[in-house]
């Protein structure tokens, strides 16, 4: 049984169906990239997985446990599935360290010392140990996003959802963030990432999923999706990406 199982997931905003029945299985330690045009439903799918958006039909299960529908302890689910956002979403009134420590201290009941030790260790791993007492607005975009990743993994989640985490960054800052994702993949973190970084998706993913207007049009290993896609729409999308010099 797959670690994350999505079956027949539909999401409707008013009269607009954003996700039209998505089926997807992600195994433990797998890295899955969601690609597709803006508005194809990548972000919404991620937000449905950790119940930030309620779903209208279908089912999401995590490690054999159905986590969609009424009566699910969503706060517990979200502790297990971390998320990193396009706009970083750090808490501006808290220092870097406090951003990271808030979850472990208040939700996992860790002592301040233990939480701080962990925060420092994680910050060192992403070369930000010297920024622990800074505030988010004193950091570059790349640094903020690295802190946001650390904040998510400080909760020791079993899976990580990355929502276009480099889209708001200046080009020269993209690499420092992607390197961390690469490390996490190497350590075996289960990850689903919505991304426009095709080169990176190709390199880091075990599976690439192409979404088109709310449907899962095609999925497969990166060599197949990027090298020999079966769907005409996928080919067209990738052709546009190549023309833009992004692949």
């Amino acid at each position: 049984m797959a670690f994350i199982e999505i079956a027949g997931l539909r999401k409707i905003y008013g009269s607009h169906e954003v996700l039209k029945g998505i089926d997807l299985e992600v195994d433990r330690h797998q890295v899955v990239s969601l690609i597709g045009a803006s508005g194809s439903g990548k972000s919404t799918l991620l937000r449905c997985i950790n119940a930030l958006e309620p779903i209208d039909a279908g089912r999401v299960s995590l490690d054999g446990d159905v986590v969609s529908g009424p009566g699910v302890d969503q706060n517990r689910l979200r502790r297990k599935v971390g998320m990193v956002f396009q706009a970083f979403n750090l808490f501006p009134h808290l220092s870097v360290e406090d951003n990271i420590m808030a979850g472990p201290m208040r939700l996992l009941g860790e002592s301040r010392e233990a939480a701080r030790d962990q925060a420092r260790a994680l910050l060192d791993r992403v070369q930000l140990g010297h920024r622990a007492s800074y505030y988010p607005d004193q950091l570059s975009g790349g640094q903020q996003q690295r802190v946001a990743i650390v904040r998510a993994i400080a909760m020791r989640p079993e899976a990580l959802l990355l929502d276009e985490i480099t889209s708001a960054l200046d080009p020269e800052l993209v690499a420092e963030v992607l390197n961390i994702v690469r490390d996490l993949a190497r350590d075996g973190m289960t990850m689903i990432l919505a991304t426009h970084e095709m080169q990176f998706a190709r390199e880091v993913s075990d599976m690439v999923v192409f979404l088109e207007q709310g449907t899962l049009l095609e999925k497969g290993p990166p060599e197949q999706i990027f090298g020999n896609p079966t769907e005409a729409r996928t080919r067209q999308f990738l052709k546009q990406i190549i023309e833009a010099g992004r692949l």
């Binding site: 706060n75 979200r78 502790r79 956002f85 706009a87 979403n89 808490f91 208040r106 909760m155």
Partner: peptide, 16 residues
């Protein structure tokens, strides 16, 4: 609203 998303995604409840 992204501040809500961030806190909720970590597992904080509405009142928290």
């Amino acid at each position: 609203p992204s501040q809500w998303s961030a806190a909720r995604s970590l597992g904080f409840s509405f009142p928290q």
